[in-house]
């Protein structure tokens, strides 16, 4: 079943002054449970693609359909609400609210969704355990390492029970051990919870972990490969 489908997606920044063609007719379909890496050199359009899929930015032309909803047609709070209930986000950095603890950060999106207290607490514990941070629940982001912060961000992304998780270069600021560790956790959640992940990267070790690798170049899909060999270190 298709979770995401983009049709002929194009994005032109600064159309009036110095137009930048960031995306040029991207057609991409993502099935439930996929673990997809968007790769390509810097400036190839990875962030632009993920932002448009995530409803953070509008395409210049083309459409994005998420489980039947054409998201470019949503606006304002409707769009924010759609993101809240359907999409989990992990950014490159500054993901977490600095004044909240790990636990509170994960709980935060569930509070926004007004889920009951019992459910919130159980899920916070389960998710922090899944990302290996059971002992850091009451630490603030400043007291956590970069890798730990990104793991909290992954836990938060899953907390809202989204249809898929978008992660834009989640390992860019991490050392290689932390990066592989984060990918292990994402892969484990992908397999155990059948959570769909789409992440961008240009790190070869991260690319190795992906099931499907979509290569962008100058805003076009250059290659779209499914890898059978996936190494997992649990």
């Amino acid at each position: 079943m298709k979770v995401i489908e983009t049709r002929n997606l194009s994005k032109i920044y600064n159309p009036d002054k110095v137009p930048v063609h960031a995306l040029n007719g991207v057609n991409l379909a993502i099935e439930r449970g996929e673990f997809t890496a968007i790769v390509g050199p810097s400036g190839s359009g990875k962030t632009t693609l993920l932002n448009i899929i995530g409803g953070l930015d509008n395409p210049t032309s083309g459409s994005v359909v998420v489980e039947g909803t054409e998201i470019a047609k949503l606006e304002g709070n409707a769009l924010i609400n759609f993101r809240l209930h359907n999409i989990g986000f992990v950014f490159q950095a500054y993901n977490l609210i600095p004044v909240l603890t790990a636990k509170e950060n994960v709980e935060f999106v569930m509070l926004l969704q007004t889920r009951p207290k019992g459910e919130r607490e159980a899920r916070v514990i389960a998710l922090l355990e899944a990302v290996g941070l059971s002992d850091k629940t009451d630490k603030r982001p400043s007291e956590l390492s970069g890798g730990q912060q990104q793991r909290v961000a992954v836990a938060r992304a899953l907390a809202s029970k989204p249809k898929f998780v978008l992660a834009d270069e989640p390992t860019a600021n991490l050392d290689s051990i932390s990066a592989e560790n984060l990918l292990d956790i994402m892969l484990k959640l992908n397999q155990e919870e059948n959570m769909t992940f789409i992440f961008s990267t240009h790190d070869a070790r991260v690319i190795r972990r992906a099931r499907r690798v979509v290569t962008l170049e100058d805003g076009r899909i250059k290659k779209d490969l499914v890898q059978n060999e996936v190494s997992i270190n649990f």
């Binding site: 995530g54 924010i80 500054y94 999106v109 926004l112 969704q113």
Partner: peptide, 16 residues
């Protein structure tokens, strides 16, 4: 700014 952007990205609506 960045932090507020992330809050809005993950689903904090305008009223909040």
């Amino acid at each position: 700014f960045k932090e507020l952007g992330i809050l809005m990205a993950v689903g904090m609506n305008k009223l909040r």
